[in-house]
Write a protein that binds this DNA or RNA. Sequence first.
DNA 1: CTATATAATTAGGAAAGCCTAAACATGTCG
DNA 2: CGACATGTTTAGGCTTTCCTAATTATATAG
Lengths: 224, 224
Amino acid sequence: MTNERIEEYLETILYLTNKNKGPAKTNQIAEELKLSPPSVTEMIRKLFGSGYIKYTPYHGVTLTPKGCTEAMRIKRRHQLLETFLVDVLDLDPKFAHAEACEMEHSISETTLEKMCAYMGHPEICPDGNPIGHGECCPTEALNASYRDYIPLSELKEGEQGTIKIISLTREIKDRLSSIGLIPDQEIQVKRKLGQGTLSITAMGTEVAVGKNIASKIMVQSHGA
Amino acid sequence: MTNERIEEYLETILYLTNKNKGPAKTNQIAEELKLSPPSVTEMIRKLFGSGYIKYTPYHGVTLTPKGCTEAMRIKRRHQLLETFLVDVLDLDPKFAHAEACEMEHSISETTLEKMCAYMGHPEICPDGNPIGHGECCPTEALNASYRDYIPLSELKEGEQGTIKIISLTREIKDRLSSIGLIPDQEIQVKRKLGQGTLSITAMGTEVAVGKNIASKIMVQSHGA
DNA sequence: CTATATAATTAGGAAAGCCTAAACATGTCG
DNA sequence: CGACATGTTTAGGCTTTCCTAATTATATAG
Ligand SMILES: [Mn+2]
Ligand SMILES: [Mn+2]
Ligand SMILES: [Mn+2]
Ligand SMILES: [Mn+2]
């Protein structure tokens, strides 16, 4: 078995067992990978032999802990590459998905982590799904940061602060950055309006931010 | 024949015929690719059958125009990836070479061109070799520019200008940028010293530039 | 010009991954 | 219960790319 084939099967099995909330069926895997069912049966037996999957003939396939770890590793590669292709190189998202699924098998862990760092350890893939954390991601630091930072929604009128972390989808982030709300930007809360909506100033202009969004923007408070 | 195998053989044959200034030998190819000589003989026959190479038994292999075009396409992929890994992701150059040689087979032309553009159409690979021009590279614009620009070495004393294109190795470019000589930087020639050496000011400080280097820095003159 | 060292090719075969056609298991419906 | 539709596995075979061992070609030294 080549690495690439193992990876492609495990990735598919992870996807299908999640979708099914149960074992992946031979025919499903065959269709997903565009292979004949006998080819899948053959490979399934090998993956079983190597301890990647649990397999009961005629009943389907689930991942073992070993297989699951491996599958999630591939998924992370795929998502980081896809994010890179879309966010950095500005490729078409659909094209990027297919391209990432090719490249994911040849990129090394070292390169992937550099890429992850280059993008600032992104948390959401352009396809909308969350990206798993990797060795390189500052989980500890982030958690520590979260303790020091407070949601923008908690700032009082007149209080100033610096935006530190924005945990929102790409689309919303894009919208925010177009009105000047990006990490390390100084802001001040001008007024608190109804329903938790805030009126804040950033880069000299005044903008309104809804409650849901304000609660996902972590800031370092500088007091009033 | 899979694409990847064709690519790897052609890349090696291009490298060896250049190095030999003559045909690539079976054993050389085998050693380069870490394969047995019979495996190479077998593949050579297939590549010959597909018109990629000229092959005379017992005498060696050269590329046909078709094979040469293909080989240079792969080489460009390899070099752009290597440049990206080193210059953008900051990987170890030696590691980057090996990694690029893996990734070069799975990256698409579309992605490669986006990557080329992202880096500003680099002209020299970290390994020191020039990178071939691609579809995406602004050859026309560059040629047009060259007509408008003159070498820094041609400026007269007191004349001012803007640096536009620096056609030098990475090392020299790095050295120049550390003293403020980068594209779009305004400079002025203070004095012309002996041997074609110039004393110029950039960002308020005065630096000396030798003749060889000054002749590779194209500037847009603003007169005295 | 021949013996010998070196380089290249032929012969035969293995592993990986895929295929089609045929056989087999399983759940469902009359 | 039994026949059938559906999904799965078995049987047998193909292609690609690689290997080792044996053979053959070429070049060179005596
Ligand atoms: Mn994938
Ligand atoms: Mn894939
Ligand atoms: Mn290469
Ligand atoms: Mn390669």
